[in-house]
Nucleic acid binder design. Structure first.
Length: 496
RNA sequence: GGCCCGUUCGUCUAGGGCUCUAGGACAUCUCCCUUUCACGGAGGAAACACGGGUUCGAUUCCCGUACGGGCUACCA
């Protein structure tokens, strides 16, 4: 029987989760759900220096907003608790020690300063220093020390790390779910640190131990991990876990809209679009970065856009709910190249979702945003029907259709001075009277009434139409005219 | 520099040997609808990075080059 599919999203709580991370989470979620499996949220907080207050909660809130809800993990619990790596600290050491015993890892006593110096020296000689098979016999580690000396140093409390011993001259390959077979030479892989001097594991060790212990079947992550994948393959092998190794899928990166390079927070600031799902306030600087939610995007639209950035359904449909995405998702349709993010198309997705939203629900939300509104819900529903096709965002309706909810604060003087003549006053008075006597405010009625009244006053529509618009809205060019007279009864200000 | 990944309209992408006169969407332009603004409709401009193979036949397969990206920490 096939193993139950289990995927995980394993962010580190160092920065607020940005849209690239959300996409990784989304694909992991979709794949798990498509295969009736589990989606797990694990927090990789092994770097204690980079801990950011509130980041973990932010991740949970952001995923919740997107409806990418874990079945198991942080904030949810599950049979593999704990799901925070800092709380699993003791677990990792035993595997690092197992690797030492089997000869696949060793203690290294080189200090960070020493290594930095070596890197600097190499740089001046236009080489790169890599802690690997070619130099490890020259360095300060248990491979070169006799066992007693090593034991003594450890007993003395000397700082050390545990490094993976990568043998030279091997070929390492694995099959990536998106890229197919990928081959590396072991010579170019360095002896990665497995356990840091503070006793915490590095990502390399921790994610492998946890993926196996938590029975993860598919590890989906960003392409930036591809170069270290062969080291990971080796760790599985040396730990005797070859048959427990999950499939790996390395996702293409999200690129900045202009130029090249991966999308970063800076691009959002520079180009004026959000890179975060939710607003984030940096706890140390107090700096606020806006989020898609705060900008008025629907979570559905945000998720929809993200899903299509690097994946496609193979058809020409573009608007999908999470459920539909779940049905259709597959690795075969993930594009291999990085995708430049397009803020304009993101707005279009929101527009598509807006047009599909229920008018009554929107009206309910909008009506609470207008203080002291005397308009009833029925009025709001009609206004929404009118405004909705003309905007991309729900909250845009309030701005663009302001005059549907309150009298204009000022009137377009230019139009008035150009078009207004005192002898038009009788016409407007009779128009108001004519409208007031209408009991059916169907568009055609209003338009007919308007035309009849102008004709009766020997006027052409063009002579007074723009003025009418100004009287209604304050503006000479405006969204609507006849339709909005549906709300005649509400527009008392017109009588002045 | 080294290693790895990639390369179809400006952008997201479909297509994976003959069906490609390369399809769709966003953006852009023109027209229609509308005495406004949108929506909508019709149409236009716009791409297979380059060079070699393989093949009867390459956008599609292989190799190289160019270009782009990623990685190269006791960060993830």
């Amino acid at each position: 029987m096939e193993k139950r599919v289990r995927t995980r999203f394993a962010p580190s709580p160092t920065l607020p989760l940005h849209m690239g991370g959300v996409r990784t989470a989304l694909y992991s979620y979709l794949f798990a759900k498509k295969n009736s499996g589990d989606f797990i949220l694990r927090i990789e907080d092994t770097d204690q220096n980079r801990f950011v207050q509130g980041a973990e909660q932010y991740i949970i809130d952001a995923l919740n907003w997107c409806s990418i809800v874990p079945d198991e993990g942080i904030g949810k619990g599950g049979k593999f608790e704990p799901y925070r790596q800092s709380e699993r600290k003791p677990i990792y050491r035993q595997y690092a020690e197992q690797l030492i015993e089997s000869g696949h890892a060793y203690f290294a006593f080189d200090t960070a300063e020493e290594l930095e110096q070596l890197r600097k020296n190499a740089e001046t000689e236009k080489r790169t220093f890599s802690y690997d098979a070619s130099v490890r016999s020259l360095l300060n580690n248990s491979l070169n020390l006799n066992p007693d000396e090593t034991a003594k140093r450890i007993a003395e409390g000397k700082h050390y790390v545990i490094r993976l011993k990568v043998e030279a001259g091997e070929e390492i390959s694995f099959t990536d779910l998106i890229r197919g077979k990928v081959v590396f030479k072991s010579d170019v892989i360095d002896d990665k640190v497995l356990l840091k001097s503070d006793g915490m594991p590095t990502y390399h060790l921790a994610h492998i131990v946890d993926d196996v212990l938590m029975e993860i079947t598919h590890a989906i992550r960003g392409e930036e991990w591809l170069p270290s994948a062969p080291a990971h393959i080796l760790i599985y092998k040396y730990l005797g876990w070859e048959n427990k190794m999950p499939y790996y899928a390395h996702l293409p990166l999200l690129l900045k809209p202009d130029g090249n390079g991966k999308l970063s927070k800076r691009d959002g600031d520079r180009l004026g679009f959000p890179v975060f799902p939710l607003q984030w306030k940096d706890p140390s600087s107090g700096e606020i970065s806006t989020g898609y939610r705060e900008k008025g995007y629907y979570a559905e639209a945000f998720v929809n856009m993200l899903a299509l950035l690097g994946w496609n359904p193979g058809t020409e449909q573009e608007v999908f709910s999470l459920d539909e995405l779940t049905q259709l998702f597959s690795f075969e349709h993930i594009h291999k190249a990085g995708a430049k993010f397009n803020p304009e198309k993101t707005k279009w997705f929101n527009e598509q979702w807006l047009q599909r939203m229920n008018d009554v629900e929107i009206a309910n939300r909008l009506s609470t945003q207008i203080a002291n509104s005397r308009k009833d819900l029925t009025y709001f529903i009609k206004a929404v029907a009118l405004l909705k096709p003309r905007v991309q965002f729900e909250n845009e309706m309030l701005e663009k259709g302001k005059y549907l909810f309150e009298a204009p604060e000022n009137y377009d003087e230019q139009v008035i001075s150009k078009k207004w003549k005192p002898d038009l006053k009788p016409f407007f008075n009779s128009l108001v009277a004519a409208f007031a006597s209408l009991n059916d405010f169907a568009n055609s009625n209003i338009e007919t009434t308007f035309k009849e009244t102008t004709a009766a006053n020997n006027l052409k529509p063009g002579e007074v139409l723009q003025l009418l618009r100004v009287f209604i809205s304050g503006q000479g060019t405006v969204l609507i005219y006849f339709q909005c007279l549906n709300y005649w009864a509400e527009m008392k200000w017109l009588l002045d």
